[in-house]
């Protein structure tokens, strides 16, 4: 009896919606292109979803504290450029630069909190800074990814394709850290009720800085994975990621405010977005309509979410 009630609850549907959308699109892809139903096919379908999933998780940390990062796309591009140049030629300098990036992100968190600035404005400004650095570092596209990154991203484990293992590991690790530890509760609490956290004696400043630093860490992982997959970099390689990552978080069941996020949902959301693009291209929809169709998929999923929310409100 209790089991049945659980399946009818909005909570279940909210969590299941991202997984259902992914399954739905995946079935569509398999139906159109049976060749995709293989180790090789799944690998090709999902390997470019991994950097997007990492960028989505990065975005999720910022959204968890009620902020928005409009610079993640250019940041990932910059990391890709660092990965293909400094990290390859002078690894120490490369690592120092990446650590510097994390420090800058933490400072951004502090700046936004102390001066109470709108994060959209600060990060939009930073997006030009990151882009500028990337162009300075790599004025013309080029460079080459370090061999160890290449080996890592092209590793082919037996039975299950690497992208699926990576996605599952990413989702579970972040889920455990954010949803199952007391530390995670604090982090989400900043977005949920900042005053309560302050009254309980915690430093919101430190928490926000940590969340921004984590954004940078996952942004770096996204950039390095991307450069590994692409083999070399371009200063504009990941500009699309800003909007994709925000859409991924929302598609995965997150909310812009209130610290309501779902790491597993975010990873599934990012994969759904990538897969939708493939699905539409297999359908042979003209490119003029593809963006519209992608938008339509987003609207359908969000409309279903609204229905779930209404169910919640009725209780």
């Amino acid at each position: 009896m209790t089991g049945l009630r659980f399946f009818a609850s909005p909570r279940f549907w909210r969590g299941a919606l991202p997984a259902l959308s992914l399954t739905f699109v995946l079935l569509g892809v398999f139906w159109l292109q049976p060749r995709a139903m293989s180790y090789f096919g799944l690998n090709l379908l999902f390997n470019l979803a991994i950097p997007i999933a990492l960028a989505t998780i990065a975005q999720m940390f910022v959204i968890a504290v009620n902020d928005l990062d409009l610079s993640i796309g250019s940041f990932v591009s910059l990391v890709a450029c660092i990965g293909a140049t400094w990290l390859q030629e002078t690894p120490l300098l490369g690592i120092a630069a990446l650590l510097g990036c994390i420090a800058v992100y933490a400072c951004l968190g502090a700046l936004i909190y102390i001066r109470q600035l709108p994060s959209i404005v600060v990060t939009l400004g930073m997006s030009f800074v990151w882009s500028g650095c990337a162009v300075l570092l790599l004025p013309t596209p080029g460079g080459s990814a370090p061999d160890w990154i290449r080996t890592l991203v092209t590793y082919k484990p037996p039975y299950v394709p690497m992208p699926l293992i990576a996605a599952a590991a990413l989702a579970l690790i972040v889920h455990f850290a954010l949803m199952r530890t007391s530390w995670g509760v604090l982090m989400r609490g900043v977005g949920g009720n900042e005053k309560a956290i302050t009254r309980a004696g915690w430093s919101v400043l430190k928490l926000k800085m940590t969340m921004y630093a984590l954004t940078a860490v996952f942004g770096i992982l996204a950039g390095l994975t991307l450069v590994g997959l692409a083999t070399s970099a371009d200063a504009n390689i990941a500009l699309r990621y800003t909007l994709l990552s925000i859409a991924g978080v929302i598609l995965g069941g997150g909310e812009f405010v209130g610290g309501r996020i779902s790491p597993i949902g975010a990873v599934l959301g990012a994969m759904t977005l990538t897969l939708t693009a493939s699905f539409l291209s297999f359908l042979r929809i003209s490119p003029d309509w593809q963006i519209g169709a992608q938008g339509a998929v987003l609207i359908i999923v969000l409309a279903l979410r609204a229905v779930v929310n209404r169910m919640e409100a009725r209780r």
């Binding site: 090709l44 390689i237 693009a277």
Partner: peptide, 28 residues
Amino acid sequence: PTEQAAQIQNLILQGYDAIVINAASPTA
């Protein structure tokens, strides 16, 4: 470039024998 990389991977899956590319980036 990321869109086009995904597009090329889709074309591989669709089983084309040759892919002719006008690329968004010489390296990405």
